[in-house]
Design a protein around this nucleic acid. Structure first.
Lengths: 258, 258
DNA sequence: ATCGATCCTTGACATTTATCAATCCGGTTT
DNA sequence: AAACCGGATTGATAAATGTCAAGGATCGAT
C-alpha cells in the first residue's frame, strides 16, 4: 500500500516527528509502509519480536495482555498515536498484544530507521525521550487510577474526562461499546452497569451511548479529579507552548491528550 | 556534602552514564551534589516541581502516591538507581512522592545538566531513551502483575524472583519488613500473612525474614512465572552483551535487574 | 527480668468485585 | 409480524480483599 500525501501530513502531527528536521523525517519515512487491517486483526502477540514502530493513522487498536487464561486491556489507542516504541528502542520483544477494534490504517516504520535517526539527529533523539517520558507518566497515572480508586470512582472520572474533552457540555457520547469501556476501566461489563446505576445518585443518566449530567457538581465531588492522576486539566489550547506528550495509557490514549 | 571518588564510581554504574563520554559525564556531574537523609524523610511530594535527577547511591527509597486519604506504594528502589527521570526530561511536576525507608545517600543532578547533555551528546541521549524505555516496560510488567494475578500468585512470583536473585537456593531472606513487602505487592499486611499461609501447601515455610522452600516445583506450578511479566529470566551474566535496562518497578527495582 | 514498643498473626466481619444465569432491548433478517 | 441476534442489564451467589480488634512474638531499654 503506497503512502498518500495526507498520510505523511498526519504522521507529522506526532510531536516527535514535528521535532525532526525535514531531512531526518524523510529518511525515517523512506523505509515506512502503510497497511490496512480489518476489525479484529491481531497485529502482534505479546512475546513477538517485532522491529517496527507502529503508527495508528486511522481506526483504533486495543493493547492487552494475558496470563493463565486471564486477559486484560491496558489501553485503547486512537489516531494519531504510536505503539511499541519502547520495544523498538531496546530492540526487544513486545510486552503487549495489539488488536484492531475497527478497520484501521497503520504505518509501519522500520525500527532501525528510528534508532539511526535518534543517533543522527539529537533533536529527534530528545523528542523520542520526551515521548517515552510522556508514555511512562501516562502509565503512572493509570496505575494510580487503578490502585487508588474503586470502579465507580474510575467511571466517574472517566466521564469527567470525556466531558472535558467534548466541551464541558452536559451531554456526552461514549466513544466505545460498553463492554470495551468496561475492559478499559478494569471491570466486568456487569459491574459497569452497576457503576452507572450508582452514579444516577449524582445525576448521571445513560441512554445507549448518550450520557447526560444533571448534577455536575455532585459528580465532581465523587470523582474528585486530580491533575496528578487525570490528564484533562486543560492547559487551554492557546497557551500550549510546549507540547504535552503525556499519554493517558490505560484510560484512553487520545490525540488531544498531548 | 562533597563527592567522594567512590560515589563517582558508583554513579557511573548506571547504564546511561556508562554510555556517556568522559567529557559528558564530567560536565553533568559538575553541578551535582550529594545529600544524606535519615530514615523516613520525605524527599518529594507528588505535585512538587523539582528539577533534579535523583540518584540513590545508598539506602532505599519508596515511591508512592495518594488520593482521597488512600495511599499506595508504586516501587521500592535500591542502589544504584534513579528516580523522576521522566519529570526531568519533560520539565514537569513529580507524579509520585519519594520517602526514604532507611538512612540514604542521594546524589542530586540538576535537570538542566541532564537535558543539555542529552542534546550535546547523542550517545548519552540515546542511552537516556533506553533508560526511559526500560522504566516504561517495567511499569507495563507491574500493571500486568497486578491485573492478571491475585495476591497469592503475586507473592508466589515475588518469592520465585527473590530465589532466582539469591541463587536458586531453597532458603531466601526477605529484604524488607513484611508490611513494606505487603505494600509493594499491593495488599494489606493481614492478607500477606494469609497468602504465606496458603503457600504452605506449596512447601513454603516462613520464619521471620527467612523463607524456606521444600516443594519448589509445586510453587513454580502455582506461580507460573512468565518472561513477559517477571524479569528474572536470567540471561546468564556472561551472555549479557547488551545491558538490560528494564526496571521491575512496582515489584522491586534492583540494580542486578539490568 | 520486666516493661514497652513494634511488628506480625489470627479471627470475625464488611466491602468490593467477579461469575453465572436469566432477561431485556434495539435492530435486523426472514 | 415473527424470529433472532448481540449487547446490555439485573439478580443471586461466590470469591477476593480490606478493615477492625485482639492476642502473640520479638527486641531493646530500663
Amino acid at each position: 500500500m503506497t503512502l498518500k500525501p495526507t498520510d505523511i501530513v498526519r504522521t507529522r502531527e506526532l510531536a516527535f516527528f514535528r521535532a525532526a528536521s525535514d531531512e531526518t523525517f524523510d529518511r525515517v519515512m523512506s523505509g515506512a509502509f502503510l497497511q490496512r487491517f480489518p476489525s479484529g486483526t491481531t497485529l502482534l502477540l505479546e512475546g513477538d519480536s517485532v522491529d517496527f514502530l507502529y503508527v495508528l493513522l486511522d481506526g483504533s487498536v486495543e493493547l492487552g495482555a494475558g496470563w493463565k487464561s486471564k486477559d486484560t486491556t491496558l489501553a485503547i489507542l486512537r489516531p494519531v498515536s504510536t505503539f511499541i516504541l519502547a520495544a523498538v528502542v531496546l530492540e526487544s520483544d513486545a510486552l503487549m498484544s495489539a488488536v484492531t477494534l475497527e478497520r484501521s490504517e497503520i504505518l509501519m516504520v522500520p525500527g532501525e530507521s528510528i534508532r539511526r535517526a535518534m543517533s543522527d539527529d539529537p533533536v529527534f533523539g530528545f523528542a523520542i525521550s520526551e515521548e517515552l517520558a510522556g508514555c511512562y507518566r501516562g502509565l503512572v497515572r493509570s496505575i494510580k487510577n487503578h490502585k487508588l480508586r474503586d470502579s465507580t470512582e474510575r467511571l466517574a472520572n472517566y466521564l469527567m474526562t470525556q466531558r472535558a474533552r467534548q466541551g464541558e457540555t452536559d451531554e456526552i457520547t461514549l466513544p466505545h461499546e460498553k463492554r470495551v469501556l468496561a475492559a478499559l476501566l478494569g471491570m466486568s461489563p456487569e459491574n459497569l452497569s452497576r457503576a452507572f446505576a450508582k452514579l444516577s445518585a449524582q445525576g448521571v443518566a445513560v441512554d445507549g451511548a448518550l450520557v447526560r449530567f444533571s448534577k455536575v457538581q455532585a459528580l465532581e465531588r465523587l470523582a474528585r479529579p486530580s491533575p496528578l492522576i487525570d490528564n484533562h486539566f486543560a492547559q487551554s489550547r492557546s497557551q500550549l507552548g510546549k507540547a504535552n506528550t503525556e499519554r493517558q495509557q490505560g484510560v484512553l490514549n487520545d490525540p488531544q491528550n498531548r
